Amino acid sequence: MVEKEIKAMDFDLKEILTPENVKRVSDKFNFSNEEDMYAAVGYNGVTALQVANRLTEKWRKKRDMEQEKDLSNAVSELKSLPPVKKRESGVRVSGIDNLLIRLSRCCNPIPGDDIVGFITKGRGVSVHRSDCTNINKDDAQARLIPVEWESALNDRKEYNVDIEISGYDRRGLLNEVLQAVNETKTNITAVSGKSDRNKVATINMSIAITNVSHLQKVVDRIKQIPDIYSVRRVLN
């Protein structure tokens, strides 16, 4: 259980579980030996995570310092980039102006999504959803920077969002979906559809929306159509 927690922190077991380090931690927990400490983990007297945290504290501090240094270097790299003409991405990085900021296509963030900036090498900041798998990796963490939506811009700016609609393949279904979207005063930038042998129709649509609330309004309206099974936002 302790080894599993250490692996989850992405540390080398051989480096962490040295006799000296294990003895140091068992002493800190006031156990007479390491067997007693592991037995305590077994009967929940102390959690495996608590033991793993104590075992790895020196390495975690070192890694945190390295990540802070990497982030500082990355920010310095950003500030050294030549100024660019301001583009209305709808996102800003606090304390840094005239910076190239682009919305990532892998997760297509829109106002209302939790977002984070990723400092690219020589190309400014790419903005991702906080749950995007492309930035939730250890080698990416050191180049993440806080960003926020600019509400003044987002009242008028539109963002392309892909949605996938599933329903029973019947005559007129596509027309009803198009009409429903039109009723929400939403522009459609692309649409395609197909059906399978089980009479399940799949409609893929790109729509121009202003924020998460606008998207939810469109989704809710489509779900009111008879024979619609599901409506979901597509993340590439």
Rank of each mutant, 00 (worst) to 15 (best):
E3C: 14
K4N: 14
I6V: 12
A8D: 14
A8Y: 07
D10G: 13
D10L: 15
D10R: 15
D10Y: 09
D10C: 13
F11D: 02
F11A: 10
K14S: 13
I16F: 02
T18D: 03
N21G: 03
K23Q: 14
R24C: 10
R24K: 15
V25P: 02
K28N: 12
F29Q: 02
F29I: 02
F31T: 06
S32D: 09
E35F: 15
M37D: 01
M37A: 08
G42T: 04
Y43E: 06
T47S: 15
T47F: 05
L49G: 02
Q50L: 10
Q50F: 02
K62A: 12
D64C: 07
M65Y: 02
K69Q: 13
A74Q: 04
S76D: 13
E77V: 01
L78I: 04
P82Y: 09
K86A: 11
S89Q: 03
V93R: 08
S94V: 10
I96M: 04
I96N: 09
N98V: 06
L103M: 05
C106F: 03
C107G: 09
P109E: 03
D114M: 14
I119T: 01
T120Y: 08
K121C: 04
R123L: 11
R129N: 05
S130R: 15
D131G: 07
C132Y: 03
K137I: 05
D138H: 14
A140N: 10
A142Q: 14
R143Q: 04
R143G: 00
R143Y: 13
L144S: 06
E148L: 08
W149C: 05
S151T: 09
S151Q: 15
A152I: 10
N154V: 01
E158S: 08
Y159W: 07
N160W: 07
E164I: 11
E164V: 06
Y168M: 15
R170P: 01
R171Q: 13
E176G: 05
N182F: 00
N187K: 05
V191F: 03
S192M: 09
K194Q: 14
R197Y: 10
R197A: 14
V200I: 15
V200E: 14
V200C: 11
T210A: 12
T210W: 02
N211P: 02
V212D: 07
V212M: 14
H214E: 00
H214N: 04
Q216D: 07
K217S: 00
V218H: 00
V218N: 00
V219K: 02
D220T: 06
I225Y: 02
D227N: 15
I228R: 11
S230R: 15
R233C: 03
V234I: 11
V234S: 07
L235Q: 13
